[in-house]
Design a protein around this nucleic acid. Structure first.
Length: 238
DNA sequence: CCAGACGTTGTT
DNA sequence: GTCTGG
DNA sequence: CCAGACGTTGTT
DNA sequence: GTCTGG
């Protein structure tokens, strides 16, 4: 699935995603967690690509209150058109979530985090959907969810799901208002080719959402990894 | 017709 | 165990 | 996703 | 909003 990711927003982001409207402060984040605000790209009524801040964890517009519905951080690609909560969103509330990498926790042999990113470290976009929720006073909150799909051959070694990463040539079609058939959706949201990606184990710093900075994506040291496995082995003997 | 739900992940 | 907050 | 809290009463 | 269950 996708429950933590990294981003880098700078001047290049605007060219990369053809953004002509809106603003997001330049930022580098290594540990974005659900409920936090990050820059998202959508197409506005004038068909311009607009960047703006949204909160991770979809709260649908029809929610009575923020608590009655668990904010939805992921949506299954396979059933998008069947789910009542998503049908209207997949039609006209699609968005790009710029990212530089994401984390998966491998369950085998202790729950250990791995960082997954592009081989050339280039930025990319998750396929997302968003909505606007209004409180009693009419105050709007923009929220989004990240679509998940089957894992590719690389991520399969870590986890049973992975975020839907858009191929660059599909970003425009995902963003514009055109209706997408079930067949088009399954093509666009199919697993990203693993040959362009890389994954490595990181330290447990990422576990705490309060930790931020480059050290979060530092490879785990051989030493720490060995200690961890020893500890697990000892636990197993008890 | 109205009322009530509407999501994902994991279960080493 | 289960919920909330980040 | 993980970490951390999880309660009541009465209150300078 | 949109779907299911009664």
């Amino acid at each position: 699935m996708c429950g933590r990711f990294s981003i880098s927003i700078d001047a290049g982001t605007y060219n990369r995603f053809r953004i002509s409207k809106g603003h997001a402060p330049p930022m580098v984040r290594y540990n974005v967690a659900p409920s936090q605000e990050v820059p998202v790209v959508r197409q506005d009524a004038d068909r311009d690509n607009e960047i703006l801040m949204m909160r991770w964890g979809l709260v649908p517009s029809w929610s009575r209150d923020r608590k009655s519905i668990h904010p939805i951080i992921n949506a299954r690609a396979e059933t998008l058109l069947e789910r009542p909560a998503f049908r209207s969103l997949v039609k006209d509330r699609r968005c790009l979530v710029p990212a530089t990498g994401f984390f998966e926790w491998r369950v085998f042999n202790g729950k250990r985090p791995y960082y997954v990113h592009m081989r050339d470290n280039s930025p990319f976009a998750f396929a997302g959907m968003y909505d606007t929720w209004k409180d009693d006073a009419g105050g709007p909150t923009l929220t989004f969810t990240i679509i998940t799909t089957e894992p590719n051959e690389l991520v399969k070694t870590l986890h049973s799901r992975m975020p839907a990463i858009l191929r660059r040539e599909d970003e425009g079609r995902w963003l514009d208002g055109g209706v997408l058939s079930s067949e088009e959706l399954s093509m666009i949201l199919s697993p990203y080719p693993p040959e362009y990606m890389k994954a490595y184990e990181v330290g447990r710093l990422v576990n705490n959402p309060g930790n931020e900075g480059m050290s979060v994506i530092a490879p785990v040291s051989e030493d720490d990894s060995r200690k961890m496995q020893t500890r697990l082995a000892l636990d197993g003997e008890k």
